[in-house]
Amino acid sequence: MTKYLSNTAGLSKSDATLVGFLALTIFCLLQPLAGALSDRVGRRPLLITFGVGSMLGTVPIMTALAGVTTVGAALALSLTALVIVTGYTSINACVKAELFPTHVRALGVALPYAIANALFGGTAEYVALWFKNAGAESGFYWYVAGCAAVSLVVYTTMRETRDAALSRSERGGDIPQPA
């Protein structure tokens, strides 16, 4: 976000850094609150809210951020995006753990996570710069919104994990002994 605010919106590097610092500080404080909310209402509602918010909010928020001229406006838009993202970041580790029984959890969580991060997280800056260099920077916003739409399909079809037993012993089964 700091690079984006500096390179695209034209904020000074110090102002862009200040916006990033303030936004991330508030974002950190939101994590336990959203986690507690998911304990009350469930994980799926937060994930679905994140999916809808990301799918519908990415393009307008990023477009508006490109034209900001003040720290206040940049902070407000950045926080709007981060509040949406909190629906994922605050609970994603719990959801991933709750989706898999303990005997396959490490593989079930780690392999898809590593593949997705390599394909999408690791290439995000390159994809964004490709769109920018092609003169179609907003194409990246649509790419992100499309990825959010795919995630939304997953969230709407997954089971609720809030009350999932995390081990066989919690479900009343035997805990497998090492061979």
Rank of each mutant, 00 (worst) to 15 (best):
T2P: 06
S6G: 10
A9T: 13
S12M: 08
A23W: 03
L24C: 09
I26N: 00
L30T: 03
L30W: 02
L30Q: 00
A34L: 15
A34T: 12
G35V: 01
A36H: 13
R40Y: 13
V41H: 09
G42K: 07
L47D: 07
T49S: 11
F50D: 01
G51H: 03
M55K: 11
V59M: 13
I61P: 07
T63M: 13
T63D: 10
A66E: 09
G67F: 01
G67H: 07
V71H: 05
L75H: 04
S78V: 02
L82M: 08
V83G: 01
V85Y: 15
G87F: 10
G87D: 10
L99E: 02
H103R: 14
H103I: 08
A106H: 11
L107A: 14
L111V: 15
P112A: 05
A114W: 04
I115V: 15
A118K: 06
L119T: 07
G122D: 10
T123C: 09
Y126S: 06
A128W: 12
L129F: 13
A134V: 00
A136V: 14
F140N: 12
Y143E: 00
Y143C: 03
V144R: 05
C147S: 13
C147H: 09
C147R: 11
V154C: 15
Y155K: 08
T156L: 15
M158I: 15
T161H: 03
S167L: 00
E170F: 08
D174V: 14
D174P: 03
D174T: 14
A179N: 08
A179S: 11
